[in-house]
Every structure is written in C-alpha cells, then in structure tokens.
Amino acid sequence: MSRKTVLITGAGTGIGRALAVEADRLGHRLILVGRRPQPLVELASGLQRASVLPADVTTPRGRALIAASVVQTGLDILINNAGVVPSGAIGTTMDDEIAAALALNVAAPIALTRDLLDSLIVSRGQVVNMGSIFGDIAFPYFATYSASKFALRGFSDALRRELAPQGVGVTYVAPRATRTDAAQGFDRLVGPMAMTLDAPEAVAAHAWRAITARKREQLPPTRERLFVALQRLRPALIDRALIRLARDPAVIAAANDLSSRP
C-alpha cells in the first residue's frame, strides 16, 4: 500500500493512538481526530506526517469541521474508531448511557462516513469500522455495547455491498478486549469472566494487515475465531456457556458493583 491519507477518530488514546503510530510507521499521512486537543497534539509531536483536528464526531458541527478539512487534503482511508464501552446490568442502565453509546458507536460512524463519502469515492478509498468480538458474540452485562457493535457490523456489510460498484472498500475489524482506558470501566468483570486483554499495539498491527489487504473483516488471531464460528453455526452452544457465566455469583457481584458506580 503506497502512502495514503488516513483519518482516525478517537485517535488520542487506546487503539486509536496505536493505529496512528502503526500508520505512521507504514508511511501514511495522518489526520488525528478527537474531542480533546492535548492528547492529539502530544501524539502528533512524535509522528512524521500528522495533523491534529479536534472535533466531536457526534455533532453536526464537528463532522462539518472534519469534512471541510478533508476537502483540502483528500482522503484515502477513514477509520471509525471512536467509541465507548458501557457495561453492567441492563436493569440499571440509564437512558443517557444508552443514548451516548449509540450516538458515538453507531450514529457517528454512519453520519461521518456519509459526510466524507465524496472524497472516498474520488480516491476509491476505504472505510474501516473498528468493531468488537462482542459484535458477533453478545455478552451478558455488555448488552448495550454488544448491540452497538452488532449494528456497526451490519452497517459495514451493507456499506460494503453498496459502495463496491464505486470502488470503495469496507473493512470491519473485530478485536477482543483490549488494555485501554475504556477497559477500566469494566475492570471488575475481567477476572470473573476470565477475559484476556490484548495490548493496543498488537491490535493495531493486526488491524493494519487487514486494512492494507483491504480485507472484508478481521477477527483476532486467537480462540475467539472458533467462538465466532460456533456462534454463527451452533448458537445454542454459546448460549449455554454464556448463560452459565451470567449465573456465576462472582460475575453477578462484579456486574452489580459496576452498576452501583456513580
């Protein structure tokens, strides 16, 4: 893949930051988007070809700022990475938590892709949606998050089919749990659910291999591939395993503890 202009949302921390570092190593030009300027500026200072664009992708004004910038630079790859990871018992989930998760994880990628579509068509570029294994395997106590990633996966499939005649590729990347600031929000569940957390750098390197190859989707190179296959072919097996997990007293206690946090 020759040098591309790459826009990454949620670039200041976590997977977004690691994606930017890996893209810079590969020689791409970067547009770093995030709500807070300081992490973006700090990141850009260590990269070779990066510009900073503070913007809130959940608002029309923020997306308009991004679209105006892209008109000037052109765009080859849009990486919809910004997201939140709500967790806890669904019975204690508040309306504003649901709305915020769907606004950032679902509505923003759809709207931003629409707003940047003309530039992507000109370059015959690529949309990359950062999903999750939880977008294939719906986990108890992550109901809202799983719903948002199922939606993003569906959007990716539909978008891929719609834009193929115009030469625009769509790649859906589904990592498993990753060691980021967002993971602190569900830290109580990591032990009881026996989760394995990957390093953001490993996730980013794996994602960029899929992006470079313009793959349809990328799952983690771990046992989760088998679980996804079972989910698609024998969902009852996954149901039994996760219902058993949801009944575990340690998991219930951890989820209740998360739900009681302010």
Rank of each mutant, 00 (worst) to 15 (best):
M1G: 15
S2Y: 01
T9S: 14
A18R: 06
A20S: 13
R25K: 09
P37C: 07
Q38K: 13
P39F: 03
V41I: 14
L43M: 08
Q48I: 06
A50K: 08
L53I: 01
L53V: 02
A55K: 12
D56R: 05
D56V: 02
T58C: 12
R63V: 05
L65V: 11
I66D: 06
A67L: 08
A67V: 02
V70A: 04
I79Q: 09
N80Y: 02
N81T: 04
V84T: 15
V85E: 12
V85D: 13
G88E: 09
D96W: 10
I98A: 12
L102W: 10
N105R: 08
V106G: 02
A107D: 03
I110E: 04
T113Q: 07
L117T: 06
D118Y: 02
S123D: 01
I133Y: 06
I137M: 09
S146H: 13
S146F: 07
A147K: 12
S148A: 09
F150W: 14
L152K: 13
L152W: 12
G154M: 09
G154S: 11
S156K: 09
S156W: 05
D157H: 13
A158R: 08
L159P: 09
R161L: 14
E162N: 01
Q166R: 15
T171P: 03
Y172E: 04
T178P: 09
R179F: 01
D181C: 00
A182Y: 02
A182H: 05
G185V: 10
G185S: 08
F186E: 03
L189W: 10
L197Q: 05
D198Y: 04
V203Q: 00
A204Y: 00
H206F: 05
A210K: 05
R214W: 06
R216V: 09
R216Q: 07
T222H: 12
R225C: 00
R225L: 00
F227K: 11
F227W: 11
R234H: 10
P235Q: 12
A236N: 10
R240V: 12
I243W: 06
I243F: 09
R244H: 10
L245S: 12
L245V: 10
A246C: 09
D248G: 02
I252P: 00
A253F: 07
A254R: 11
A254Y: 11
A254K: 11
A255S: 14
N256C: 01
D257V: 02
S259C: 11
S259V: 11
S260D: 14
P262Q: 11
